[in-house]
């Protein structure tokens, strides 16, 4: 790690001003950042620590319209939160509880999980210069070792979005609030990720100095259920090879609303609207789920080493739909 100046703000406004400075980076627990600094893929002159603002930025509370989860809430707190018990937010709870290890989840924050840098091994190594890292002319994974990379929705960079929570929160209709220039702004969570995730785009759409403050989950009305499943090579402590979060609303045994969001298969978490729409008006059943699973990977273009993800992805979409409607 190169030396840096450590900034401890008292307020969001101070943190924002400090983080707007060229080269400054924001940090929560630092699980991702410390790793990047140690690998020397980044050497920021200033690190702005948000942990002193924990009182305002951590915790889960009912804010009237739904649940507000502070950006500094730890993954463990989310996995165990009483407020997230019940079927509607199962996907969020499960995704948080599956992430990394108990040791990491005790410190890692919601904000850090959503905003972390992609885990592509070329991007994360100082020995390689790739297009997304801004240090090379091409995406090295596209023609190189790409078994963990994108199978759909990629342009000139085949990284995958590494967050477990992003697909789960998207499936549950989450919104997010940021702080920028003295104002809080609230948007649908999909706006946190670039529409066209090219190499030049960051993993997220936050402007320099913009601070993720909280995630909001709407109050469920009716029989709303969600779940999250992922495939991985190891039972514990592994990154997902594919991930699927689903939420369905049931009324008199018929699906009246549905969302399906894929993770670990594209440079951004991918809502599959057409696949979800195919379920509406249907009774839960394997034929409908199989069709939705097929549609979820429609238009995929796998790379030389990762076509296996197609069948895994279909399998977990089907399994998640089966589980959530059981």
């Amino acid at each position: 790690m190169k030396p840096f100046t450590y900034v401890l703000p008292h307020t969001l406004a101070e943190a924002h001003t400090a983080a707007k400075k060229a080269g400054a980076v924001l940090k929560g627990a630092g699980i991702d950042l410390v790793d990047r600094l140690k690998e020397r893929i980044e050497a920021p002159p200033e690190v702005v620590n948000l942990l002193p603002l924990k009182n305002d930025l951590a915790g889960i509370a009912d804010d009237g319209g739904g649940l507000r989860i502070g950006a500094l809430t730890t993954l463990r707190q989310i996995a165990e939160a009483a407020a997230l018990q019940g079927p509607a937010f199962g996907a969020v709870r499960i995704a948080a509880g599956l992430t990394a290890t108990p040791l990491v989840r005790n410190r890692a924050t919601l904000g850090g999980n959503l905003l972390q840098l992609a885990r592509c091994w070329y991007l994360r190594s100082a020995a390689f210069g790739c297009l997304h890292g801004g240090k090379g002319p091409t995406c090295l994974a596209m023609t190189g070792e790409n078994r963990y990379h994108s199978i759909l929705g990629w342009h000139d960079c085949v990284r995958v979005h590494p967050s477990n929570l992003a697909p789960a929160l998207l499936a549950c209709g989450a919104e997010y609030t940021t702080f920028f220039d003295g104002k809080q702004e609230r948007r649908p969570l999909a706006a946190l990720f670039p529409d066209e995730p090219t190499a030049q785009k960051a993993e997220h759409t936050l402007r320099d100095g913009e601070i993720l403050v909280a995630i909001h989950l709407p109050k469920p009305s009716g029989d709303v259920r969600s779940t999250y499943q992922e495939t991985r090579e190891k039972d514990s402590f592994d990154w997902a090879t594919t991930a699927a979060a689903v939420q369905v609303t049931l009324q008199d045994g018929t699906i009246t609303d549905a969302s399906i969001v894929l993770g670990a298969v594209s440079p951004v978490p991918r809502p599959r609207a057409e696949a979800a729409k195919s379920l509406i008006g249907k009774k839960p059943g394997d034929a409908a789920f199989l069709k939705a699973a097929e549609m979820a990977v429609a238009g995929a273009s796998p790379l030389s080493q990762n076509a296996y993800k197609l069948s895994l992805c279909k399998a977990i979409v089907r399994a998640a739909l089966t589980e959530v409607t059981r």
């Binding site: 030396p3 840096f4 100046t5 450590y6 900034v7 401890l8 703000p9 008292h10 101070e14 943190a15 400090a18 702005v48 620590n49 942990l51 002193p52 603002l53 924990k54 009182n55």
Partner: peptide, 21 residues
């Protein structure tokens, strides 16, 4: 009690900075 409490005792309006030494 916490880094936040440490910060709170300092002058308001400007963040505390440490390092790089």
């Amino acid at each position: 009690a916490t880094a936040a409490a440490t910060a709170a005792t300092a002058t308001q309006g400007k963040p505390e900075t440490f390092g790089p030494g």
